[in-house]
Design a binder for these strands. Structure first.
Lengths: 339, 339
DNA sequence: TATATTTACTAAATCGGTTTAGTTTATTTA
DNA sequence: TAAATAAACTAAACCGATTTAGTAAATATA
């Protein structure tokens, strides 16, 4: 079963490449290729298992029916799930997905963007490091179809699909206050990401709106690559030293997991002494002890909407609609915040 | 900043496309392009941010510097992590990665294989549904470079990287026996996957080697798509009904998680009444109550080795070495099996 | 000084598709 | 019955790279 090309079909049937190409692209009728010839071509192609070389096709058409997905880290279950739903939705529209991880490094992200452009992806979905204003602007100026997901650039008007980080965290913090907690800490990652800033603002606004002061030493922002080492100190400071906090808001699932791990090692009772709550969750958060209350992100909707917006953008001719979607998180109440 | 092509560089510098192409591919010296001309080309290309169209390049070269990765489901953390390490290693060798999920459907897997071949991937890494003998054989006959990962075809000689499923499960079962458990159950997925068969054999051989009978009603194989519904019944049968088992071996992380969930709902004490142990683990298995003893798979090594073997295969000229790698799992002992 | 070799390039073919601009033959229409 | 139209195709250009087979001018060798 050797590989067969357009020319082979044309030669075998005594036709031109043009005729064969037209028919195989479902444009036989409009180009008045006789039904009989069409059938001959289709049958021969099927029998010989013809499959067009997508490189040649892509070169000729200037497109590839491929979407590029750039995420910080595909082994983070959050982005893995995004990728999963992006892939499913993309396939519905006939697109394949190429992915790359930037590892939170803007230089790698830039490299990935251009590498994908060179590979003629038809559009990009990017969960950006948010330090690439320049390249995002270039994409925009070039009218290249793209959608930001999970992270966006507040100062650049683009299509994006994000969640309401402020609202979600405010909600979480209010939940703790409602449950009687008075001294609530906040553990996040040191980062310029707007999502994390918004989460902090959500925490702060819940406090102030409820008549509490914002205390700087109730807030810890850990190094993104060393948070596991820094967690113990942070928890000790907040809970065991002078602060005596009775609750902690974690801004990511991995911080919450790491935090709980340290709380257990330090023998601090959760939620009795300290309640914890997490922005975003892991599949096993209902199984840990205690089960962790968390704001669940609508990952499936995020993936779906990003693809829908992108495909629309790819196919559209002139219309210039900006799609800015802010989805809501959902608080899953479990036992880590007390009753 | 508009897009620039090889021809533009040639025209601007009054040179031929040939010269420019040779220099940009680092073959200026061997083709006696003067140092001065080389510098002019390199400078101009850099200044104008030239990036070759990879479709044209791929068409011309018959290769794409891209590796295809086909997994059952990218949102399964196990495969997400495989993808992560595959991507990192591939990048080291200068390859990009295209991924697709087969959703355990052999028809989709076949479609993905051919779609990727049409996109001129240089090689494939496949965690197969294991129901595609035909296509795997075709790949082999065509001498197309590929490596199976996680799942292989016992009857087809190929490159593969898998783990010692039998040994790992035997080890797990022995661990339970050593801890004094006498009536050990086995919960798996109904499937033809050799990995799951081996895990069952591992369980059985540990039992027989230690003088225990294999009891068919101690073994449950759940529907892969309905295991969450079937889990409660399985646990009830095994623990609460006549069987009165005192331990359960789960063959995947999601079965263990689901099983623990039901055990908790049924108020069955773990490990006091029933010990549990899991093949493969989730990141939070050390945080759940009780922390789950599990066989950890060497995901990073699997990804790395698969890529190394594949790249070797892609680059090699004649030599025909079969690489069959069976890696060992590592038992992480936690509290779910008793002391 | 005539010939051979080297240097520094280039023209054109090629990869495998798509597409534009025709062409030939048969059928209508005036 | 000649001119116009329609039917059913095809030749060749094109996408943007790589590569083969040369070539003209400069230098070396006999």
């Amino acid at each position: 079963m050797k590989k067969i090309f357009l020319k082979d079909i044309a030669d075998a049937l005594n036709l031109s490449k043009t005729a064969v190409s037209l028919v195989l692209n479902n444009r036989g009728d409009e180009n008045k290729i006789s039904k009989e010839t069409q059938k001959r071509i289709l049958d021969f192609a099927k029998k010989n298992n013809y499959r067009p070389n997508q490189m040649a096709r892509g070169l000729s058409l200037g497109k590839s029916e491929t979407i590029g997905l750039i995420v910080p880290n595909i082994s983070d279950i959050f982005y893995a799930r995004i990728a999963h739903f992006v892939e499913i939705k993309a396939k519905e529209f006939g697109y394949n997905v190429v992915f790359s991880s930037s590892n939170e490094n803007p230089a790698i992200e830039r490299e990935m963007i251009y590498s994908m452009l060179n590979r003629q992806v038809d559009g990009l979905i990017i969960a950006s490091t948010q330090k690439n204003d320049e390249d995002i602007l270039k994409l925009k100026e070039a009218s290249f179809p793209f959608v930001l997901i999970d992270r966006y650039y507040p100062n650049i008007k683009t299509n994006y699909v994000i969640v309401d980080n402020l609202g979600g965290t405010k909600n979480m913090t209010s939940h703790l206050l409602k449950n009687g907690r008075k001294k609530i800490g906040f553990i996040s990652i040191k980062s310029q990401l707007d999502a994390l800033l918004q989460r902090r603002l959500g925490y702060e606004s819940a406090l102030t709106e409820n008549g509490f002061e914002i205390e700087n030493n109730h807030i810890k922002e850990l190094d993104p690559f060393k948070y596991q080492d820094e967690m113990k100190g942070a928890i000790k400071d907040m809970v065991q030293k002078v602060n005596g906090l009775d609750a902690i808001v974690f801004t990511t699932h991995y911080l919450a997991a790491s935090g709980l791990r340290e709380l257990k090692l330090l023998n601090i009772a959760v939620p009795k002494k300290v309640a914890i709550i997490s922005f975003d969750e892991l599949g096993a958060f209902d199984l840990v002890e205690p089960p962790i209350t968390a704001s669940k992100q609508p990952v499936e909707a995020m993936g779906n909407e990003a693809v829908e917006i992108l495909v629309n953008e790819i196919l559209k001719k002139e219309l210039k609609i900006e799609n800015e979607r802010v989805l809501q998180t959902k608080l899953l109440i479990r036992k880590s915040c007390g009753v």
